[in-house]
Design a protein around this nucleic acid. Structure first.
Length: 260
DNA sequence: ATGCCGGGTGGAACCCGA
């Protein structure tokens, strides 16, 4: 079963790219972030033509996450149950049967707050979001529920995960407090699948528009798939597909693919 | 040149992203 996460940076600006990519890629489930649209304006019909049902947690202008799935999903939550007062659309949780294990697993799609600049309430919100997310996830983990967490984490886990650690030493994505909260998940038992399954240290998933990031190869590894041990054991492959980043009028993120 | 681009809103100039 193939899962792909992709921050599309506006679903309506990127619909042609998404359709082109799905036709080539044919994942079973897509985890999309940064839709920048409400559910009513999400292009469900065009997605339906490709054989996928859309499950949308939308928001006007910013944020927004969605699942696209060939098989029906059971949506469980559209916000973090331990953080229901969060008014941003950054979370979507579903249940799906993984045939390989013949059991239900959870899929969690996140668009974690960026948090810049670090000396503002935006960063406080990021850390609060991560703490409340971790609290909920650890509860699921302790119930032995197999979990796949995918999305735009806005976390550069280590210095090797950015083209220039020096340029990002004061960035919310590389801040020690951010990395500490990310490590809570790793220390619990989640596997950072891109780090573990793809060799090398330039596994970028994002290249900024400003300053010619893509052209210069100045990337970041901030889109992740984390898995619980039972799922980590049976992973077939993890890939980053850089092609969509090279297309004209591209998203600044590129798809990350997890095959189980 | 992170004042750089490219999306959003609202109807110009400004907000946001990472």
């Amino acid at each position: 079963m193939k899962f792909t996460t992709w921050n599309v940076n506006s679903i309506n600006a990127r619909i042609d790219h998404l359709i082109k990519f799905i036709k080539i890629d044919q994942s079973d489930v897509y985890l999309l972030q940064e839709l920048k649209c409400i559910e009513e304006k999400f292009p469900k019909q065009e997605i339906e033509k490709l054989g996928y049902k859309s499950y949308v947690n939308g928001q006007k202008a910013w944020n927004g996450v969605a699942f696209l799935s060939k098989k029906p999903l059971n949506i469980l939550n559209n916000n973090i149950p331990t953080f229901k007062e969060d008014d941003n659309s950054r979370f979507l949780e579903a249940e799906i049967i993984l045939e390989k294990l013949n059991k239900k697993i959870r899929l969690i799609n996140i668009y974690l707050p960026n948090g810049n600049p670090i000396e503002t309430s935006k960063f406080d919100y990021k850390i609060e979001w991560m703490k409340k997310f971790n609290k909920y996830i650890l509860d699921l983990y302790n119930k032995n529920i197999p979990l796949i967490i995918g999305g735009d984490f806005n976390v550069i886990p280590n210095d090797e995960d950015v083209y220039s650690p020096e340029n990002f030493k004061n960035d919310a994505c590389a801040h020690p407090k951010t990395r500490e909260q990310f490590r809570v998940l790793l220390n619990t038992g989640f596997t950072d699948t891109v780090k573990y399954f793809i060799k090398g240290n330039t596994n970028w998933t994002f290249w900024g528009y400003r300053g010619g990031g893509w052209q210069k190869g100045n990337g970041l590894r901030i889109d992740h798939f984390l898995t619980t041990p039972e799922l980590t054991d049976i992973i077939k492959d993890v890939k980053i597909n850089r092609d969509p980043r090279s297309w004209e009028k591209a998203s600044d993120h590129t798809p990350v693919i997890l095959e189980i």
